[in-house]
């Protein structure tokens, strides 16, 4: 494995029946970078994320995370290894409060099982206090601490987005996958999101970003991978990608449609 690479994907393919959602995707994500995956709709970006998080099983190919093979592992093992994600369409636990959602995000940071919970052992209570404190810190960071005890379903879309991000950060992952985090945001909000992603990177997290907002991608990414119909067509720093003729053709082509 390349030194300093946190994630290494080789020959990754995913077929649904006759549909090739991903075909021969390769990438090396260096630790501590913002790595963007872009491409027109249907390019396989979300399928790529699903393969990385064990939501779907890749048909062929290898995924190595911190030098450990991940392909084929169930999602909860991948989460334990240190990968967290958000979803393109928000998937919060709708019958729970904001704080409870973030506490579920802390799941891998705790260890209380059935006996400890039933007997309410002192170790369990200590752990609960610790997790609550950590969860509140994540809420504060995203400026939604005042909403902690609100049912999550009562919040407007933008704040639900933040809760989902807080929940992913609460897992204290090493690699954070963001699936179109700027969807539905206005320019100012997108700017704030960009700053937030950069501050997450400052802390040493690696961010893998699927995004349609090109100005955001070009501004904050260290490296960009372009997919088209599941096939990687270009990879490089943002400036290089902006000038890549194949990429321009795809985007102009799709816009011309």
């Amino acid at each position: 494995m390349t030194p300093d690479a946190i994630l290494e994907v080789r020959e990754l393919s995913k077929r649904f029946g006759g549909v090739h959602a991903l075909e021969g995707v390769e990438c090396i994500v260096p630790e501590g970078q913002v790595f963007a995956v872009i491409g027109p709709n249907g390019a396989g970006k979300t399928t790529f994320f699903n393969c990385l998080t064990g939501v779907t099983r890749p048909t062929t190919g290898s995924i190595r995370f911190q030098n450990r093979p991940l392909a084929g592992l169930p999602s909860h093992r991948i989460a334990e290894a240190g990968i967290a994600r958000t979803w393109q369409t928000i998937r919060l636990f709708e019958h729970m409060t904001v704080l409870e959602n973030v506490l579920v995000g802390c799941h891998t940071r705790g260890s209380t099982g059935f006996p400890g919970a039933i007997l309410r052992l002192p170790s369990q209570r200590r752990e609960e206090r610790r997790l609550r404190e950590a969860a509140m810190n994540h809420l504060q960071r995203l400026e939604i601490a005042h909403l902690a005890h609100r049912p999550v379903s009562s919040l407007p879309f933008l704040q639900q987005r933040r809760v989902e991000l807080a929940r992913a950060l609460a897992a204290e992952p090493k690699l954070l996958l963001l699936d179109e985090p700027a969807a539905g945001l206005n320019t100012r909000e997108t700017g704030q999101l960009g700053e937030l992603i950069l501050s997450i990177r400052e802390q040493g997290l690696t961010v893998l970003l699927v995004e349609h907002d090109m100005s955001l991608v070009m501004e904050i990414s260290d490296q960009v991978l372009v997919l088209d119909h599941g096939v990687p067509i270009a990879e490089g720093p943002p400036r290089q990608i902006q000038e890549n003729e194949k990429v321009i053709a795809i985007y102009l082509g799709s816009e011309a449609l």
Partner: peptide, 8 residues
């Protein structure tokens, strides 16, 4: 699925 991806 969301629960599984969070490590449950």
């Amino acid at each position: 699925q969301a629960a599984d991806v969070l490590g449950i």
